[in-house]
Design a protein around this nucleic acid. Structure first.
Lengths: 132, 132
DNA sequence: CTTTCTGCAAACTCTTTGCACTCGT
DNA sequence: ACGAGTGCAAAGAGTTTGCAGAAAG
């Protein structure tokens, strides 16, 4: 009935809090294994799901193939480079909520709102301009 | 060398322009088959990719399992109900670009920006309040 | 002790791909 | 007729799950 504190869950949580990139489940698995070599990928998935339910991890799903997990919990947005797939965090200035009031009037409950910017990072932009 | 106008590509494009929901590839396949019963799922994927490259279709990737495709090409945002998974289009008032100037100064090329709002639709919100 | 969680491996879902054939151009 | 595009079926990638045993409370 109660949730247990296993070393596997703790390790997954720790990896995510330390990660500044946006690792996939597989990448998390690889990192967790450095501390606990016998952890299975299935367990990593189960614990990521648990952390996501508790909102201790953010799930980032973009045009990439695999889901990415974000341990940064402050409100921020994302930039996705369409050239190399790199995902960057964007600091959010103000907690702007332009769309929400209309939605709420229509009966929707708003929990969170995020902006995603698509484009090219400096490196990919330069590459493209040199080969037009 | 040149791109050909096949009936399959035309049918996929037509299904997407007519769709007001956000169908998955499988759903597009089902609808295309109503006109061309012999079309394969592989072909649907290949044509969706072609349309996405041409930007005649928008790829919407959210916490859902399968990728969704959006034939609406005007600038708009999305609301995802975390209860039932329903995806709704949100009209965009002004083409607000708050984050972009800073990014562009840093050398990034910005192509597009979209807002995603997460929460509960009226039905799921009511359901949750009745069972707390 | 009881019950949740784990490791393993197999199953599943969504997507991509190799190949011989079709059909636009 | 040439070659891009197709159908089919098989392979890939990412994720989920059933089960027997391990371990947290």
């Amino acid at each position: 009935m109660t949730e247990r504190r296993t070393r596997q869950l703790a390790a997954v949580s720790e990896v995510l809090r330390a990660a500044h990139d946006h690792p996939t489940a597989d990448e998390v698995h690889r990192r967790v294994r450095r501390k606990l070599p016998r952890v299975s990928l299935g367990t990593v998935y189960r614990n990521l799901e648990k952390l996501a339910a508790r909102r201790e991890v953010r799930v980032v799903q973009l045009t990439d193939r695999a889901t990415r997990f974000d341990g940064m919990l402050d409100e921020h947005d994302h930039f996705l480079c369409e050239g190399c797939g790199m995902l960057t965090d964007l600091a959010r200035k103000r907690p702007a909520r332009p769309t929400c009031s209309a939605l709420q009037r229509a009966g929707y409950t708003v929990r969170e709102q995020t902006v995603t910017v698509y484009g090219l990072c400096p490196r990919c932009g330069a590459k493209q301009r040199s080969v037009p």
